[in-house]
Amino acid sequence: MNRVAKSDLILRVTNLYKTFDNTIAVDGISFHLARGEVLGLLGANGAGKSTTLQILLGLTTPTSGQVHIFDRDLSRHRISILQHCNFASAYTGLPTNLKVWENLLIFAYLYQVPHPFKKIQSLLQLLQIEHLKNQVTGHLSSGESTRVHLAKALLNDPELLLLDEPTASLDPDIADKMRKFLRHIQQERGMSMIYTSHNMRDVEEVCDRVLFMHRGRILVSGTPAAITDHFQSASLEDAFIRVAREGDQFLSP
């Protein structure tokens, strides 16, 4: 594959701050992402996960701090960076009265995918949703719609894929299939991923490393197992609950 990122560091975030009026959404975080790594952002509601992703996508401008993706400054090379990134979330939609293949075709054109029809066909096969090709997007169930969104997110063979709660609203069976699929495709392509989820199963199975966020700061980072140990909890879920309830005491002043 012809990669844009020259070094093995896909993403570098330095001293990132974001305040909205009186809310500090992101409070001076720094982290990086290596090629082929899957990073999970974990944290309670309002911890700053989505805001961080939005900044990485250039949708929201940071109050201060730097973001470098593929060794380029995001604030200056947004369009060329976005060409090699993609995004999916349970909270976005696609035009409802278009057929699935039409929506995918438009995004394939937007990302200037070579051989768009072939690419769409192969992704539909990969995600086992070929039968939905001619369905009207607005009529899909949430599980089907999630897979269509993932197909959209994979159209340009992104080197960096950002997922904001992609498995929200999926039943456990489909969620399990999605996790396995994501892990498989990620490993096969050496794709780097940032993943937010409130499902600890997701995080344990998909993420190599986790950033535990609390009130806009990173409390701790490590493998899911290391995080569980760090908080002396029985499981990642217990650690999560502990941080959500007593998180303030772990914040360094």
Binding site: L59, L82, F87, S89, T92, G93, P95, F107, L110
Partner: peptide, 18 residues
């Protein structure tokens, strides 16, 4: 507005569209 109604605005603006 069509993009807002369809919740598609984010998809469009995270694509490399000027």
């Amino acid at each position: 507005l069509e993009d807002i109604w369809a919740r598609n605005l984010m998809n469009v603006f995270v694509a490399p569209v000027r």
